[in-house]
Design a protein around this nucleic acid. Structure first.
Lengths: 260, 260
DNA sequence: CGGCGGCTTGAGGTTGGTCAAGGCATGTGG
DNA sequence: CCACATGCCTTGACCAACCTCAAGCCGCCG
């Protein structure tokens, strides 16, 4: 039934967020219509704009159509920890909005196209459409899995391994939303920024990166990073892309066993 | 994983998991009945039993009624990173079950009472009851927030600060499920285990703990940890309990502004 | 009583942080 | 079109923090 409205010229189905949900569960036309409503209000923000500031109250989510942002916290020792690089298809304000006060800050690191979603509308949608709420549970689980992997990175991996893992995660996530092709991608962060992701100092990131290059594992030109030896880098960083995979809610069929 | 029997005299509403969901959203009688069904199969697990092993496939969740477990990963450099301490009311297999293969291992660190929940049943429940699915989205968001805070800990906090933050988080989470009262709690981990949570070596945990004691911030007797100077410890660890708070889906009313 | 796991303490060495200087690219305004 | 400023990368020297290894000890449990 319902007409699937268009945000732009693009049908809802092309929205990276909707695509992501759709990969977990089969959304029906009503779901898509509801999502089209949800994504009706577009917003553009400039690079370096603060979108969420820790400690303040937010009652609206922003679903990312394009561009990048970082979710981070500033500590009283002057250090910064970036906990997540936000890509198209991600939700800004998740989970900040679910609290009285934001627990992290979010800043755009490129020009961004966002969809403004009042929390109220989001909640209503969840309560009205179990399909979508369920897809969001899976979405959130994947989110948690990425965070967990990040803890391992900063907690127990050697600096070189951290970088390897980080680069592979970036490539994999960027590829999943069509922001990278082949084995290279545009790094949206400075080396100091990378340090704030993986818990190293800027200079040390530089040294480790240099080592990866001299080992012939990667190459960089400007902000472009190219993975030269995928296999070696995966072993070094103990990276299994599984945790970033699609996670279907229903088994598509009697699953043939897959190699780990 | 042995004895399977009926849920005993306790009403569903007393289950820590149900309590947690109920704190986010008002569950109706149908919801509670459905949850009672979900929690029908009890299982008891002994201390040190592996519940989930990384790389294997799982099609069932275990909801914790009592006892503790750790979620962790072993790396090829021989190190271990614990990403989460699982308490009553938590779900074992979240998010492991949502993947083809578990991405982390889970081991009981005490005797545990669990509810065995086939993934199928869990999924059905989500799809059938939007109320519960929505509560689970909030549940997962809180989960992600805890992980994010943990990244900050291992990535950028000084060792002393980490310990402070870790101890306060443990106390707060334990209190929330009635496993601690006042300002003290039973630490379920060895010092080496604590090190594997916060990314320090065993001996260094010992030294930092000694420092906290000598500063008069905490005291320990056996496995009992007592917070002596809550305010100072909170400042040191930059700990705000907000991210562990209840996160109501509907504002209970026109919220009086609360101090940050 | 003996063994074992975990706590405690010490010595020594490496890693990675800090600080600082220089270079290179990019962009901007005159 | 050039002068200059700015931000980031790169490199080096130095040093402290934290890890590793090791030994001794305590308390608990069999």
């Amino acid at each position: 039934m319902a007409v699937v409205r268009k945000t732009d010229g693009n049908p809802v189905k092309d929205n990276p967020f909707v695509l992501k949900l759709n990969r977990s569960i089969r959304l029906d036309d009503d779901d898509l219509a509801a999502l089209a409503d949800l994504l009706a209000r577009k917003v553009v923000v400039k690079k370096a704009k603060d979108i969420i500031v820790e400690g303040y109250e937010y009652k609206a989510l922003h679903i990312v159509e394009s561009g990048f942002a970082i979710r981070y916290k500033l500590l009283h020792n002057g250090k910064r920890q970036i906990v997540k690089i936000i890509l198209p298809g991600d939700i800004i304000g998740f989970p900040a909005c679910f609290y009285e006060h934001a627990t992290f800050s979010v800043t755009a690191i490129s020009k961004m196209d966002l969809h403004h979603v009042p929390l109220e509308a989001f909640t209503d949608l969840c309560l009205k459409r179990a399909n979508i709420a369920t897809a969001l549970v899976w979405f959130a689980a994947r989110e948690a899995a990425i965070y967990a992997e990040h803890i391992v990175d900063t907690g127990r991996r050697e600096p070189l391994e951290r970088l390897a893992h980080f680069l592979l995660e970036m490539l994999t996530r960027l590829r999943a939303v069509g922001c990278a092709s082949g084995n290279s991608f545009e790094m949206p962060l400075s080396q100091e920024g990378i340090g704030d992701v993986v818990g190293l100092s800027g200079p040390h990131v530089n040294r480790m990166l240099a080592e990866l290059k001299s080992e012939g594992l990667i190459a960089t030109t400007g902000h472009e990073v190219k993975i030269l030896d995928m296999a070696a880098l995966q072993i070094l960083g103990e990276f299994r892309p599984a945790y970033l995979d699609r996670t279907p809610i229903r088994d598509p069929g009697p699953g043939r066993p897959r190699a780990r």
